[in-house]
Simulated assay, not measured.
Amino acid sequence: MIIDGHAHACGEYLTVAGILKKLNENSTDAVVLCPGELNKDKGYKLPDLYLKYPNKDFIYVINRLTKMIIALTSAAKQIDEGNGYVFSLVRQAPQRIFQFFWVNPNDKNVVDKIEDKYALWNFKGIKLHQCWHKFSLQNENIGPIIKWAENKGLPVFIHLASRQDALDMVRLVNRHSDACFIIAHMIGMEVFSQAELQNKNVYFDMSGGQLIPQKKLLIAIEKFGAEKILMGTDTPYGIDNLKNAIARVHDLPLSEEEKRSILGGNLQRILGLNTFLTRLQRESEQ
């Protein structure tokens, strides 16, 4: 099974027709989707910095730029509406599109809000983003959000903003040793690769491949194993992201079994998709 493990409901993935077209063109089974720029069908061409600067990591610079753009555009205010839009897409293709619910930890009664939406939408994970919503991992709501996800057996996907946040994340991970975490874009790998992680359910997303140096990717695989790496695209931020991400996995010096794990096997296991898809099939036949 091949799964695009991280994408946004805009650009090429704005509509179900566009999503299925792109998945089918690349022999990909499914996509994990979260909100994007509402009603925007525009894609973004990004330079392959990992090829031009193989030993440099630009992610923290990009994070600072992202914070500035989000503050200027007030795009974060659209996340609730975006969550609803993602669900509307899932309803049309529940076997191909899986939702991660984007959460603002600063919201009042945030856990109640998550619980209410989960009862209606049955999403497959929680997303947090420190560049879109300004919050510390020491925020009083973070622990309850993590505990809620742990109790539901759902992963928490988090985009960290700084190296200090990566250090805080190590402490958070170790405090919640039974929860499942996905670190967006391998942010903070220089910290995680040196840390003693007591939690064995920490995974690393390789989406936004234009920014991930090969050295960083290989360090992640060497330190944590292919079973902890997830292929994603961050569509629409880049052109032909899905095609390029799949090709990059195939070019890695790994066994075919390890490549299959990165391409979708790991996420298939994390999300319990075998059981979920079997249930959907039975319901459709009734």
Rank of each mutant, 00 (worst) to 15 (best):
R279E: 12
A76V: 02
L72C: 05
G18K: 07
K228I: 02
D116V: 02
Q95C: 06
D4G: 07
L137E: 06
A226F: 11
A166K: 03
W132H: 10
Q95I: 01
K113F: 10
R279C: 00
L46G: 00
Q214F: 06
L197P: 13
E37T: 12
I183K: 05
K52E: 07
Q210P: 02
V156L: 09
V32D: 06
V86R: 05
G11S: 01
R163N: 08
N141D: 04
M169A: 15
I158G: 02
I97P: 09
L72Q: 14
N26Y: 10
R260H: 13
I62N: 04
M169Q: 05
E115T: 13
P35R: 08
L172W: 03
M169H: 09
I3Y: 10
S177R: 15
I158V: 14
F181Y: 09
D48M: 11
Y237R: 03
L280V: 08
P47G: 08
E81H: 02
A184Y: 05
M206I: 13
F58E: 03
E285I: 13
K228Y: 03
I142R: 00
I229C: 01
Q164C: 00
R282P: 01
S162A: 07
M1N: 07
F181I: 09
K77R: 14
N266D: 06
D107R: 05
P47H: 10
A161M: 07
I221H: 01
W132S: 12
E256F: 03
D240G: 01
G11I: 05
L218I: 15
A76F: 11
I62W: 08
V103D: 00
Q92R: 10
I182V: 11
P94E: 10
K200L: 09
A226E: 09
Q210I: 04
L230S: 06
I239Q: 08
E115H: 09
M186N: 07
Y13Q: 03
D116A: 14
H250N: 15
M68S: 03
K124A: 07
Q286E: 11
W148Q: 02
